[in-house]
Simulated assay, not measured.
Amino acid sequence: MKRKSYQSMQCPIARTLECVGEWWSILILRDAMTGLTRFDQFQDSLGISPNILSRRLKGLVENGFLERRMYSESPPRMEYCLTPRGHAFGPILMCLNSFGNRYFADDGLASVLVARETGIPADLQVVDRRTGREVSWPEFVFVPGPAANEAMRSKLAFSEAVVSEGLAKTS
């Protein structure tokens, strides 16, 4: 059964899922963040079949999260390194780790995010750079952007109305 493609959807979340939505892809990116670069390292870490790993690596390369680099010419061997886009995905993985520790670590914390220089554990929070306020729902909502099509505008109409109502109250 072929999975649904999100490529034609305008939603930025759907478009991101189109590139990294397979759980193997997210775990490959996690492993790349820990320093793994070679096919056999990913395979050993994940216990994934070679054909699935090949497809996921190819997809991550095609979508700009990883780049292939030759590390041996004889025999030819490739490694997979994070690109700037791959590095930019890091905070998402950090948030997933934090969420997992908070809600699914009944048996204890298996992975903790710490500051490299101090070793002090991080207490993640998503913050709006403009205001310094914590970003959380329902205080922050999605509204249509300037390029939103009719389907996106319809999907986000309720949120947009709530924001307009809030703005009218503060005026």
Rank of each mutant, 00 (worst) to 15 (best):
L93I: 09
W137D: 12
N101F: 00
V143D: 00
F140G: 07
D107H: 12
A148T: 01
R55L: 14
E62A: 09
D40W: 11
P144G: 03
K155A: 13
G145D: 07
P75K: 00
M70Y: 13
V126Y: 03
L113G: 00
A88N: 08
L109S: 09
R102L: 15
V141P: 03
P75V: 02
W137G: 09
I48Q: 11
G86M: 06
R55D: 14
R77Q: 13
V126F: 07
M152P: 05
G47Q: 03
M70H: 11
D107Q: 15
S136N: 12
L124P: 02
S111F: 15
F142E: 10
A88Q: 08
R56C: 06
Q43D: 05
S98Q: 09
F89C: 00
P144W: 05
N101Q: 01
Q125R: 15
L113A: 03
L82G: 02
S45I: 06
R130E: 15
Y71C: 07
R116C: 09
R68C: 09
Q43L: 05
F104T: 08
R133K: 14
A115C: 14
R68Q: 13
Q125C: 15
P138Y: 01
S49H: 08
E62G: 03
Y80E: 05
L36D: 06
A105F: 01
F140P: 05
G108M: 04
G100I: 09
S136E: 14
N63W: 07
P76Y: 06
Y80P: 02
K155C: 13
S74P: 07
A110F: 12
R133Q: 15
V135S: 00
F158H: 11
S74W: 11
R38K: 12
I92F: 12
L53T: 02
G86W: 00
G108L: 05
D40T: 15
N101M: 05
G47S: 01
G47E: 06
D123I: 14
F140W: 13
E67T: 14
G90Q: 06
G108T: 05
P146S: 11
A151T: 08
G100V: 08
P138M: 04
S154L: 10
F158Q: 11
Q41T: 01
Q41K: 01
F65M: 00
S111D: 11
A122M: 13
